[in-house]
Amino acid sequence: MERDDIIEYSLHAHHSAEEGVKIRKKIYFVTALLSIITIVEVVVGVFISRSANEFANPGLWTSIKIGYIALTLIKAGYIVLVFMHLGEERKHFKWMILAPYIMFLLYLIFIALYEAVAVGHGMTL
């Protein structure tokens, strides 16, 4: 006998062929963007390497480092919001997923790196 208490449901699981063309266009745009960002990161990493610049040009290296992190966050944003379709979910669902994680991790990064510096000073004493 077929069970009727298990419901195989799905919401927003279909779109038309015309909508598909538009969605694929967006996918190809994001693909190009992610590839270009990766290429930029690698080219910068090869030609302005950390080993050659970290102590020789600390100012330049710090700005490159911040640039890397910014590019990474842009890449992550496009993957989560477009590829994982989180941008198309309900606003409250989006923030239910993102907000607790971001808040916790920002605090963890702050406290871990702050403590790491203190521990490092202790190691030299």
């Binding site: 871990a112 790196l113 403590e115 490092g120 000073h121 190691m123």
Partner: peptide, 17 residues
């Protein structure tokens, strides 16, 4: 996230020392 933060902790502690 915890693993990468732990990496950051080890590195910052080592560099500071």
């Amino acid at each position: 996230g915890g693993l990468l933060v732990a990496l950051g902790f080890a590195r910052h502690a080592a560099v500071t020392a």
